[in-house]
């Protein structure tokens, strides 16, 4: 069980949160100019990091807000928590 520090509510149990998958995926500005390969990559292809993974979480049974988490997929350790829209923080590998 993870203890996740919601930027608004503080430390709460993982049970109150849901993970929204990889963060920092930007919707293409001109999808009409993309071929099927590029569109398929945007929709389906995700990193499968062994190490630091930047992902979105939502405090659904809490304040309802989305935020970003940098988490080690090896140790499950949460390395950074930051706002949606912020750049990836520097975190130790």
């Amino acid at each position: 069980m993870l203890l996740i520090s919601c930027p608004w509510c503080g430390d709460r149990s993982e049970e109150e949160f849901s993970c929204g998958g990889e963060a920092h995926i930007v919707r293409p500005v001109t999808p009409q100019d993309m071929d099927d390969q590029a569109w398929g990559d945007y929709v389906f292809m995700r990193r499968n990091e062994k190490g630091v993974h930047f992902e979105r979480w939502r405090h659904g049974n809490g304040c309802g807000r989305w935020f970003n988490v940098a988490r080690s997929t090896v140790t499950h350790e949460i390395l950074a928590i930051y706002q949606v829209g912020d750049d990836r923080p520097e975190v130790p590998e």
Binding site: G10, R12, S13, E16
Partner: peptide, 24 residues
């Protein structure tokens, strides 16, 4: 409920959304 009910953050004058068994 997974909240820390002994925390001063849950003294009267506070509130929190959470879950009770499987219910929000």
């Amino acid at each position: 409920c997974p909240l820390d009910l002994e925390s001063p953050d849950l003294a009267p004058g506070h509130c929190a959304r959470s879950i009770l068994a499987r219910c929000g």
